[in-house]
Design a protein around this nucleic acid. Structure first.
Lengths: 168, 168
DNA sequence: CTTGGAATGTCAACAAGGCTGACATAAACT
DNA sequence: AGTTTATGTCAGCCTTGTTGACATTCCAAG
């Protein structure tokens, strides 16, 4: 099915064949399952879902972030996010403070209990990632991140980069 | 929060810090969105979802595969898969043939129309992956796949490897 | 000062795609 | 003959996404 490298252009483009690309696609599929498996188990026990994990993660990364900012990072509708935030706030994991400058905005913070959940989830997720990183070494990790970054949509890459600035 | 490298063990383990791991986690999150974005758009138009894509993909990879095998690859319940398969079969994208050796089994094949959809979806997904691969070069791609493989659950790694054998 | 629009919350309804449990059938195995 | 396996299906539930509508609050421009 239409190899990428033409018959005359076979320098070292063998990594761009359809077969190689398909391997990459399947690797993403299977790896993402592993990536979410550990947090998912914890969440199920506590009666939460992946959506709660995502919210808690990004609030932890950018304490005081607004709902709108969170919406654009997560890429869901406000109604969908609101349902998740509602349970997190009611359960005392997230605090929503009315903005001081602009009182329409709500600034989101994790409570102590929220931080505890975040820590539990991210520890589990980091453990798996650490094991993988350690196993393959630093050069592979660089390549891993380069490919992922190149695969993002541009707006997501901006979010990714913005989080970098703060987290460095 | 508990750096991995102790104060005395700082050879070159800086790629295992919590901060580096968190970057990897966020990269996975944002990249997976990009990874699925193009097929998702196509699927929405045609009235299908990601679940249909997965089924069609793996049937294409292993024509004649059984329902049970597909279940263990996809990691869902038979009821969930059945709902998806039902629509694919009714729409004439997948054919289900009773097994010859073991007549309890159903062997799954894509029809011409099924192959056409698969081609459309995988072309879109490959295009993005190809652009990413090309941009970062072959060494990065090797690292990418190494990390992903190390991140899989063992049983998924087996599926991944088995698909490799057939597809090489 | 009024008004438009932005930021947020909320209600309702719906769909996709997971899940469990129960039951049915046919074929294979013992 | 009885059990296990492979599959299908019905019913019902949950999470998490969607759209549409409407209320509130408040900044900012005219």
């Amino acid at each position: 099915m239409a190899e990428t490298s033409g018959p005359a252009g076979n320098e070292t483009l063998l990594f761009l064949t359809d077969d190689q690309l398909r391997k990459g696609i399947e690797a993403m599929f299977f790896a993402y399952r592993g990536f979410t498996a550990d947090p998912d188990r914890i969440l199920t026990v506590k009666g939460y879902g992946r959506a709660h994990h995502r919210a808690v993660h990004f609030i932890n990364r950018s304490p005081g972030t607004t709902v709108n900012n969170l919406l654009s990072i997560l890429g869901v509708t406000k109604q969908s996010l609101n349902r998740v935030m509602r349970t997190l706030i009611d359960d005392g994991l997230v605090e929503s403070r009315v903005g001081t400058r602009d009182k329409r905005e709500r600034h989101l913070f994790l409570t102590e209990r929220g931080e505890a959940l975040e820590a539990e989830l991210s520890t589990a997720q980091r453990n798996r990632m650490r094991a993988a990183f350690r196993q393959v070494g630093p050069e592979a990790v660089v390549g891993f991140r380069q490919v992922l970054e190149a695969m993002m949509d541009t707006d997501m890459r901006h979010h990714y980069a913005r989080l970098r600035e703060a987290g460095e």
